[in-house]
Amino acid sequence: METFWFIVVALVLAVYIVLDGFDFGTGIIYLFVARTEEERRLTLNAIGPVWNGNEVWLITAGGLLFFAFPKAYASGFSGFYLALILVLWLLMLRGLAIELRNHLDHPLWRPIWDVTFSISSLLLAVVFGATIGNLVRGVPLNAEGYFITPFWTTFLPGPEPGILDLYTVSTGILGATVLGIHGAYYIAMKTEGDLHQRAHRFAKVGGWVLIPIILLNLFFLKNVQPILSANYSAYPIGYTIPLAAAVALGLMLYFCQKGRDQAAFLASCIFILAGIGITAWGYYPNLLISTTDQSYNLTIYNSAASAYGLQVGLIWFGIGFPLALAYTIFVYRSFWGKVTPASLHESH
């Protein structure tokens, strides 16, 4: 039962990163590819009907973690106290930027929100990358299963690490690059003309930048957290996940060269899913790894809610999850296709 909920939390989080990932990516490339007022409104309309729903996947991932593994939720959220509150503020500013930008037609109003949208998206993408880096590297859990980390200590991974060190900064950059490209594919897929051209070019160049960053991360990973490889040695079937990621990456670059944006975007989705899958496979059954003593690790067994709670959760999960998927698919189908200048006049 614990394993089931581990998979669910990881899956919902992965879907969140794929979906809100292209919103963030859209924000990252926004100021570069969308130059005119019309292009900016087209870009925002491309994510307009869906970004809020995408963010619900994050809320739900948090809710599911709270429900299934309250101890890990409590420890993780309080341990990253300042960083998480800063994330909240960024999420707030970003949401406001998207929603409020078009409320007022004034030459000073829109640029403020455009820049807010872009910078907060970039920072959030870096932060989410760095968060995964922190989880992989581990945190200084004490015997009660709690910790608190400062933003930085020596900038080196070790028993008393900060949130930002050499490794987590590199995962942060990886996060921003992956999502930037992801967003570029999305915008290329959803638009036409100059906007499409620029997004496409951005994705093309980004693809080549991505490869050295991935290699750098792989090099760090081997040294930072050796226990991640244990599950792969025990169950070599897990190696299919990094293989899938590599294939998806190759396809991404190939389709991008061929100008098949939709296929490239799909490959990018699979690449991100597989990326989370690689981490989850190595991480299981841990939820938080300790840098001080492996026996302090929070696992799905010592953090879980009661057996009854986990079982009865299947009832509402069995109803709610298919519904959530159905709504998501319905909305994406409803707004499928390119956003065109003509469509600007139809929205509310």
């Binding site: 619900v56 809320i59 739900t60 948090g62 809710g63 599911l64 709270f66 429900f67 299934a68 309250p70 939720y73 809610a305 709670g309 009865v312 959760g313 509402w316 999960f317 109803i319 709610g320 999850f321 519904l323 959530a324």
Partner: peptide, 10 residues
């Protein structure tokens, strides 16, 4: 955690 997770999902 039950009710809060249900709120998100449902």
């Amino acid at each position: 955690g039950q009710t809060l997770a249900m709120e998100g999902l449902l």
